[in-house]
Amino acid sequence: MARTIVITSGKGGVGKTTTAAAVGMGLALRGNRTVVIDFDVGLRNLDLIMGCERRVVYDFVNVINGEARLNQALIRDKRCEDLYILPASQTKEKEALTKEGVGQIIHELSEHYDYIVCDSPAGIEHGAYMAMYYADDAVVVTNPEVSSVRDSDRMLGILSSKSKRAENDEEPVREFLLLTRYNPARVEAGEMLSVGDVQEILALDLLGVIPESTAVLNASNSGIPVVLDQNSEAGQAYADVVGRYLGEDLPHRFLEVQKKGLFDRLFGG
């Protein structure tokens, strides 16, 4: 029986897809059979971040509509054989995702996989509801600034009232905070909320802090999940996130300003 994890935020552009790709890859690298589903129908991006955009034939909506079998739509990652991607449809409306259709696919996948990672679209519209409805765990991706924190808070409220677990009065969805684009220097300068500030407002278990890094952008542009770049701080931080999610007790890193030489300033991640 698989565990279903939703990567969500409310606000757009905070790093949900980057996180979904990194966490999916991270889980698979540790030998877990993992599938990452892109719920952003109409604005699909996961295939780009995962570097499989040229191999998309069928998509999520095709499977829901019975136009393709699940196995035809799943794309196996070339770098890690335990990782699969179910891309979103670029041409359909978000309403094409029905609760029954999504439920059926999650049910089918959960028989063959260990983890199902759902990459939620931004906002609190239909697509985001569908992405979080079947979740067992939620990773709330938040940037250290007030509007992102408030949107995350709103999303947490929806999770605790509108998810399948909430509706059926089951054990609530496990919620984790993931702080991304964290810049210790700007926190020190008072331009950014600190980890402590965000945690005080959201009152949530901290799964990890991903430092702001050019490595993330480079990884996205080249279609390589950043967790594979173990030379970068962001890549190491994501590896820690996966470890913590799986129950390892790891200290949080990259929270302090690093003293850098000129070379690092120019080329470092």
Binding site: R150, D153, R154, G157, I158, S160, S161, L202, A203
Partner: peptide, 27 residues
Amino acid sequence: TRPVRSGQKVYAAGGDLIVLAPVSSGA
């Protein structure tokens, strides 16, 4: 006993309301 998040409403009909978890702005 669980946080009341932004956008959530809690109403105690007829009686008192006791909250033991954080209440976010917008709740």
